[in-house]
């Protein structure tokens, strides 16, 4: 049985189409990433799957249960971690955990095994009100609370947004460990660099899926040759590349520009020639990343 099956889901908010004909499935024990910017429709999809919203069209099932008809049973067996920090800020760490254990008809002790690794990290602060924790700590607590009833599917919605890099790294390590314990995870994130940490990903933009595959699979489909161009005076370089008639796309990537050419590989020499007057010029072939792919697909979508 596939734990998550999504079939042509559409959802409209007024004039805004939040989800447009979205379909994909998540396999058992998979860590599946939904990657896209704010407003792409990620949270809406999460809410439909956790039975908080009804889709306008299409169907979906979680653990083989229909999200509309069997919503009560789904609610018992999934762990949901909303995008916004949604615990009681005035309750302490241990009070929050105990509360969520109780409303799921279980106890902290009964499922402590599953959350132990995570909980020990916040245990020193167990008497502190949740509202006074740092961003990373809050997310760990929220994850503990979402796991305390041993869900078979976990839905963390943007768990790493606004969290410092160390906590982000730790959070992904926790997700990997949960995956090893057999929990199916659908996670969303706006950070393209987190895509490679997932088994498979779906790229979503403006409510529509642009691609679904393993991160490597998506990168391999990016067939255009890509150059990383840099020079001492970045602004002049940018202007120059933008005006160059053979430029197909040019996007800043840190200190480099990622450039594709209409003429492809054949145009490299001419490009170098054109830019030769820039001091400190470097034009090198480079490997595309998920972000390059995302932008390429966005351009296609817009056309």
């Amino acid at each position: 049985m596939q734990p998550i099956v999504i079939n042509s889901i559409c959802k409209q908010f007024g004039k805004l189409s939040a989800l447009n004909n979205v379909s994909f499935t998540v396999e058992e024990g998979e860590l599946f990433g939904l990657i896209g910017p704010d407003g792409a429709g990620k949270s809406t999809l999460f809410r439909i799957l956790t039975t908080l919203l009804l889709a306008d069209k299409g169907s979906a099932s979680v653990m083989g249960l229909d999200v509309v008809k069997d919503y009560k049973r789904i609610r018992r067996s999934v762990g949901y971690m909303p995008g916004r920090f949604s615990l009681y800020q005035d309750l302490s760490v241990e009070e929050n955990l105990a509360f969520f254990a109780t409303i799921f008809n279980t106890t902290v002790a009964a499922n402590y095994d599953l959350v132990r690794d995570i909980y020990v990290q916040i245990e020193p602060f167990k008497k502190r009100p949740a509202g006074k924790l740092s961003g990373g700590m809050k997310q760990k607590l929220a994850l503990c609370c979402a796991l305390i009833h041993k869900p078979s599917v976990l839905f963390p919605d943007e768990p790493t947004t606004g969290v410092d890099p160390v906590s982000r790294k730790e959070f992904w390590e926790m997700l990997q460990r949960l995956k090893q314990k057999g929990i199916t995870i659908l996670v969303s994130t706006p950070y393209m660099d987190e895509a490679v940490l997932c088994d498979r990903i779906a790229l979503i933009q403006k409510g529509a899926l642009m691609d679904i595959d393993t991160p490597q699979g998506i990168i391999q489909r990016f067939r255009q040759p890509l150059w990383a161009v840099s020079a001492d005076r970045r602004y002049e370089l940018m202007e120059d590349v933008n005006k160059y008639p053979d430029t197909a796309s040019s996007y800043a990537f840190g200190e480099h520009l990622h450039v594709t050419l209409k003429s492809g590989e054949a145009g490299e020499a001419a490009l170098k020639q054109h830019l030769s007057r820039h001091r400190g010029l470097s034009v090198e072939r480079t490997q595309a990343g998920i972000e390059d792919c995302f932008m390429f697909l966005m351009q296609e979508q817009n056309q």
């Binding site: 609610r75 916004r84 949604s86 409303i103 008809n105």
Partner: peptide, 13 residues
């Protein structure tokens, strides 16, 4: 407002 209603609704309560 704080979003906790979402979690409560998703619980078996």
């Amino acid at each position: 407002e704080t979003g906790t209603m979402e979690i409560l609704l998703v619980s078996p309560l």
